[in-house]
Simulated assay, not measured.
Amino acid sequence: MAKYIGPKTKIARKFGEKIFGKDKYFDRKKYIYNQHGSYHRRGKKSGYALQLLEKQKLKYIYGVLERQCRRMFKKALSMKKNTGEVFLQLFESRLDNVVYRLGISLSRSGARQLVLHGHITVNQNKVNIPSYLLKPGDIVEIRKKSQNNPNIQHVLNSHNSSGQIVDWLVWDQEKMRGTFKSLPEREKIPENINERIIVEWYSKYK
């Protein structure tokens, strides 16, 4: 699956969830979805179909391709821990995702662009690879020459004022940098993803 650049609401409606964040469609329709999205209510689907749809949802949420997803699964499988939890932790450790979680960008796609264009440093070194995996203790910072960028300033002032930063990250507004404190525990990851059935899919069809 190539990276999707079409209308995000169209994809969000497919899963019955605000998988890309705020979406006026769901607010307007007063849409109510169940634990795993609307596609679980449209007639009986096979286990294969449910696993495939859940995998596609994960890929859309984090903006990754199939090759990247498989690589993450193999890495998670090689660790002596819960594969599903490690699988999601790896996605949450991606630099573009952390930039988004810190509130430097309002979307993961926007965060990816900031990284690609060299606006972000890790431990004071410029990193322009969105898939770069952070380790506990790493410091993510907006480059000095980018800190006065009006677009970045607008996002920081509007987003961080709401205090919506997750527990495993710390943001220093004055220094415009964040710290990746630790790998997140599964119950603290807010994304509505059933990683167990994705692991089952990759285990059978890898």
Rank of each mutant, 00 (worst) to 15 (best):
I11Q: 09
I11G: 03
A12I: 06
A12K: 09
A12E: 11
K14H: 10
K14Y: 09
E17C: 05
K18M: 13
I19S: 15
F26S: 15
F26V: 14
D27I: 15
K29E: 12
Y31V: 14
I32W: 15
Y33K: 15
G37L: 12
S38L: 01
Y39E: 09
G43W: 12
K44A: 10
K45V: 09
K45E: 10
S46T: 07
G47W: 05
L50E: 04
L50G: 03
L52H: 00
L53T: 03
E54N: 07
Q56H: 15
K57I: 13
K57G: 08
K57A: 12
K59A: 11
K59H: 05
K59R: 09
Y60K: 12
Y62W: 03
G63N: 10
E66G: 02
E66Q: 06
R67T: 05
R67I: 07
R71N: 07
F73R: 11
F73Q: 06
F73M: 01
K74D: 11
A76W: 02
L77S: 06
S78R: 11
K80A: 13
K81E: 02
T83S: 00
V86W: 03
F87N: 03
Q89R: 13
L90R: 01
F91E: 08
F91L: 06
F91Q: 12
E92Y: 04
R94H: 03
L95C: 00
D96C: 04
V99N: 00
Y100E: 01
R101G: 07
R101L: 14
R101I: 07
G103M: 09
S105C: 07
S105G: 00
R108W: 10
S109P: 04
S109D: 10
G110H: 07
G110W: 05
A111N: 01
L114I: 08
L114D: 08
L116M: 03
L116E: 14
H117W: 15
G118T: 12
I120F: 08
V122R: 10
N123T: 11
N125I: 07
K126L: 12
V127N: 12
N128V: 10
I129L: 15
I129T: 08
P130W: 08
S131D: 11
S131N: 09
S131P: 05
P136A: 11
G137F: 09
I139S: 08
I139W: 15
E141A: 06
I142F: 06
